[in-house]
Amino acid sequence: MYRRIHLTNASGRDAMVSMAIVPHETSPRLGLRNRPVSFRRYVACTQETSHEALSRRLGEDYSQALIEGDPEIDRETVGRTIPGSVSILLSSRGDVLHASPAVVEAILGPDGAERERRQPVDAPANVHDEEPLRWTGRKIPLRDLARRFTFRRTIQIFHTDGLTYDFLLATARQLDEERCAVLLGAGPRGAEPLVFEANGRPYRGFLSGRIDPSNPERYRLLLHLSDMELKPPPPDALTPPPAPVAPNDP
């Protein structure tokens, strides 16, 4: 079963239907002819053989030590396959953090410079069963849509039974005839962008529809998700990237 999505149509009627990420053309896999290979992550160095550790142990100029021996290689560990791992946080002193950290939100400008720090506010998902995505009535011709926004994610909408088939077929037919897409909105009044996961990225969602020219019983409804307009960055953003964010003084 695909994930469910709740939608309204142009008449304000709602239905629970299915959605899935549309597959895309894939790259050829890498390998060798007639010889199986596998992709692995492995340990390349350890904390004890890092530059900082070697400097501490052998002094800043340890090049001769590298020539005379192999202090930078931990023969027991380097090369070990890492079948799996979990993400952890280290303190600024390099210790593993055993308690949840405090979290702040940093706002970076287009030039990459930090503008503000503030307490993060959790944003709940608003694409769920209870509240339908609403047909806002704001339509945009497909040609304009493709030239004004960039779409990194596209979701296909499917029926779940005969009734929802009729519902979606009619929606697709209307959009196909008008050669336009309609903006869908979330929230009680349909004015909010679409957020699929808690604290997820907000997207503008445009629904487009097509009917198969060779079979009018077949339809295709795509929800195009955009988080970026096609426009140039401000001039100060087109300069080489700035230094990383400096920590706050405690």
Partner: peptide
């Protein structure tokens, strides 16, 4: 979002 350590400095992400 920056996780901060008890001293108020940003944490480093790592793998275990």
């Amino acid at each position: 979002r920056l996780p901060l350590d008890p001293d108020g400095y940003p944490c480093e992400r790592a793998q275990l």
